[in-house]
Amino acid sequence: MPLRRFDRTSWPEHGPHRDLLDLLDDVHVHHGCPSERVLARRLRTSTARVRDVVRGRALPGDAVGIRDLVAALTAQGRADPATADRAEALT
């Protein structure tokens, strides 16, 4: 089955939000592209909320914290601290 990357059609062209989405996408691909449904289960939130964040329509917030999202993107459920710090700085 081919890897399914995030839909980028709503991503901003540049800026910190774009840099954050690129970082999340890199982690996502590196860890086998878990589906939005899998991410939602790991985060205990709705698939629609995850979809809005990874497609660039919303920023991570209380419902989906950036560190939790980065951790959910990994198969182990833990994020590299430097990656999580970078993601938090871009939020």
Rank of each mutant, 00 (worst) to 15 (best):
M1A: 15
P2G: 14
L3M: 13
R4I: 15
R5K: 13
R5D: 13
F6S: 03
D7C: 05
R8H: 14
R8L: 11
T9Q: 15
T9V: 14
T9N: 13
S10T: 12
S10W: 15
E13H: 08
E13K: 07
G15K: 03
G15P: 04
D19R: 14
L20Y: 05
L21F: 02
L23P: 04
D26P: 01
V27M: 00
H28M: 03
G32H: 06
R37L: 11
R37V: 12
L39F: 03
L39D: 02
A40Q: 07
R41Q: 13
R41M: 11
R42A: 06
R42F: 02
L43N: 03
T45Y: 06
A48I: 08
R49M: 13
R49P: 01
V50R: 05
V50E: 08
R55D: 12
G56K: 01
R57V: 10
A58W: 05
P60E: 08
D62C: 06
D62N: 11
D62Y: 13
A63G: 12
V64N: 01
G65H: 14
G65E: 13
R67F: 02
L69S: 06
L69M: 09
V70P: 00
A72T: 02
L73N: 04
T74C: 09
Q76C: 05
G77Q: 03
R78N: 09
R78M: 08
A79S: 13
A79Q: 03
A82K: 11
A82R: 14
A84N: 04
A84E: 05
A84Q: 03
A84S: 13
D85V: 03
R86F: 00
A87I: 01
A89D: 11
